[in-house]
Design a protein around this nucleic acid. Sequence first.
DNA 1: CTATCATTTTGATTGACGTCGAAGTAAGGA
DNA 2: TCCTTACTTCGACGTCAATCAAAATGATAG
Lengths: 119, 119
Amino acid sequence: MDTSTVGCCAPIAQGPLSETDAADLAILLKAVADPVRLRLLSLIGSHPGGEVCVCDLTGVFDLTAPTISHHLKVLRTAGFIDSQRRGTWVYYWIIPETVSRLGALFSPLGEPAAEPASA
Amino acid sequence: MDTSTVGCCAPIAQGPLSETDAADLAILLKAVADPVRLRLLSLIGSHPGGEVCVCDLTGVFDLTAPTISHHLKVLRTAGFIDSQRRGTWVYYWIIPETVSRLGALFSPLGEPAAEPASA
DNA sequence: CTATCATTTTGATTGACGTCGAAGTAAGGA
DNA sequence: TCCTTACTTCGACGTCAATCAAAATGATAG
């Protein structure tokens, strides 16, 4: 795929997506198409230090620990976050490359992702 | 929200998403988190002339017309596309603003949505 | 007015998803 | 060793979503 095409449109509008690419991207999108996981991702991604303990996440939501754990697993399986156990606690951090992959899909090339008025 | 923050991270990683914003964005993401709708969106968005007749879309998929119609409705309700009937046929076109809204969420500010190697 | 084509709506089925409680694993402290 | 805290896995339940067949709507042609 060459990137020398006109810079008017987002990649998703530059040519028909192949069946394989669409299936691949849908998996990625499904992982973030949930309010809880969206908030988890932003909480983890915006945390100073880059790492968040699960214990800091459970209190934020009106959900049980198993449910939070489930959502974290979905995000981890999709490649948005990774984790490591250190002693008693488990820490999660974001994987920016996966986030950027979605950004690349929907952002017009050559544009710094201008935000519309109603954002 | 001010856009004067550092350009290191995607907006989703710049601060915890509010419950309302997360719910709002999840609706948008759910609409595109499907391989068929992703392909429909790219087919409509990349069509020369900017408009596509439904009759040109049904043949592309191994799905019945009602199913395609259903997916188009989901995309339209979410604000990704709009449509107009002209005579016998119905034409669909993309709404770039909505697409950009997702781009803005996941793209690092100041970066033209650089595409990773494994795209 | 009827027939036909294009598209959407309706109703039903099937499978996937979010959530919880209960049980399981891992680490640290008494 | 036993208990407590932190987190994950398992099993189950209710809801939502993708799909199809059948019927309904809209528009043109004869």
